[in-house]
Write a protein that binds this DNA or RNA. Structure first.
Lengths: 228, 228
DNA sequence: ACGAAGCTGTGAAACATGTAACAGCGTTTT
DNA sequence: AAAACGCTGTTACATGTTTCACAGCTTCGT
């Protein structure tokens, strides 16, 4: 399906979890972090659900995947639930990420990573522009794309972000797969054709923009039945 | 449900079209453009479907929303189908778009718009940084955010992109809604809380990244049953 | 101490989405 | 000229996801 379908799943224990659930769990955890930061100790499903723009039932159902039960009277203990979702979501160890393409978007991604996401770290950048290669960007070394194979092997990188022009994206992706990448985040507005065992997530600004333009038109871009 | 659900629909004639269908149609059209550019005249459903990574049945089903029937022997005429999808998707007139936040991401968006998308045009940029205000960026004037209301009224802007730091996003969104915006594309990794009649699309890099990290883990991040 | 209230977890129903099966129709083949 | 082929449009079916509904628990108020 590869567009927005939820066909990608992941076995965990005996059950299988859909993308939609994973995305929502990530969102819940983010909200829980904020709550913990602001000193809140307990939270009820309807409060958390409201923050996440989801029905309480769905929230509770999603939480069934996590191993933690709330109290009927206090609700969920914020830090515990956060920790539990983390145990479910987080990789056992820090994951090394490569960034390909150090243009405006690439730099924006660097900025994004600064400070946060201790679990994911950009440890190598690639480009073809000689001016951008063999330098240190935010403390991260940059290489020419031709070195991808060696560098990624050496550093044990299995996740990469592609932030190059559309025309170059497919060839970059092929190179990365060659270099052993297992999972990609692609920002180029091109549908990549890859072996089925490589997980790809597309952030396709062009498509998203056209979508927004479409639903912006009147009359009636409405949320169906019961949305807040 | 505002995360990835498909709850937003749009009435058209008598029928209602889901987000998933719209996204796929946009993708089909993109592929058709490429085909037309490369001189292809006719295409069969299974070819187009393969390019879009979709089953032929689904493609044909999606095309039922468009008013055009292919020939059983030649398939679809590329330019005609492209035109027909366009008639379905495109706004009747060019849409003016505002961009808020002229950091790295904002500039990447400008770069993205250069040349293409004649139907969507960035006609105003906003920021709070005095150094970035009252200039011309790629031929587009930039203003201080406090002028949003006036400028957007004057220029008839109803679509905006938010590319500011997470902490500022909600307040920017409130300002934009105040200024009459109907549809938003938000890049800040914060869930915006807005009136229900404003359409919001989130491009949440943080969530997407965690998702990729999650599905990158072995064993078995697999596509279910029959994927190519 | 007992009932009421309000929350959680979950089985079952409702709904949306994707998949498979098939009828119809030009074109080509015998 | 008739039959066979291969593709389309569409209807029926299967799967996945969300919502509904309710039983059980824990505190609070009487």
């Amino acid at each position: 399906m590869a567009i927005k379908g939820t066909q990608t799943r992941r076995k965990l224990g005996k059950k299988t979890v859909s993308e939609l659930v994973v995305v929502r769990l990530i969102l819940y955890r983010r909200i829980l972090r904020d709550l913990a930061f602001s000193g809140t100790r307990y939270v009820f499903s309807h409060q958390l659900a409201a923050s996440a723009d989801v029905t309480p039932e769905q929230l509770r159902r999603d939480l069934m995947n996590v191993r933690y039960e709330g109290s009927p009277t206090r609700g969920y203990e914020v830090v515990v639930l956060e920790e539990r979702i983390g145990a479910f979501l987080d990789p056992p160890t820090t994951q090394a990420v490569a960034l390909v393409g150090v243009g405006n978007l690439g730099r924006a991604l660097f900025a994004y990573f600064l400070g946060r996401r201790p679990l994911l770290q950009i440890v190598a950048a690639f480009d073809i522009d000689p001016a951008k290669v063999d330098r240190l960007l935010n403390g991260c070394p940059s290489y020419h794309i031709s070195e991808a194979r060696t560098v990624m092997r050496d550093k044990g990188i299995y996740v990469a972000m592609i932030a190059v022009p559309a025309a170059a994206a497919q060839s970059v992706a092929d190179t990365l797969v060659e270099a052993g990448v297992r999972s990609l985040l692609n920002f180029a507005d091109v549908r990549l054709r890859l072996p089925p065992d490589v997980y790809v997530e597309h952030i396709d600004i062009g498509i998203t923009l056209e979508k927004v333009a479409f639903f912006a038109r009147r009359p009636a871009a409405t949320k169906v039945p019961g949305s807040p």
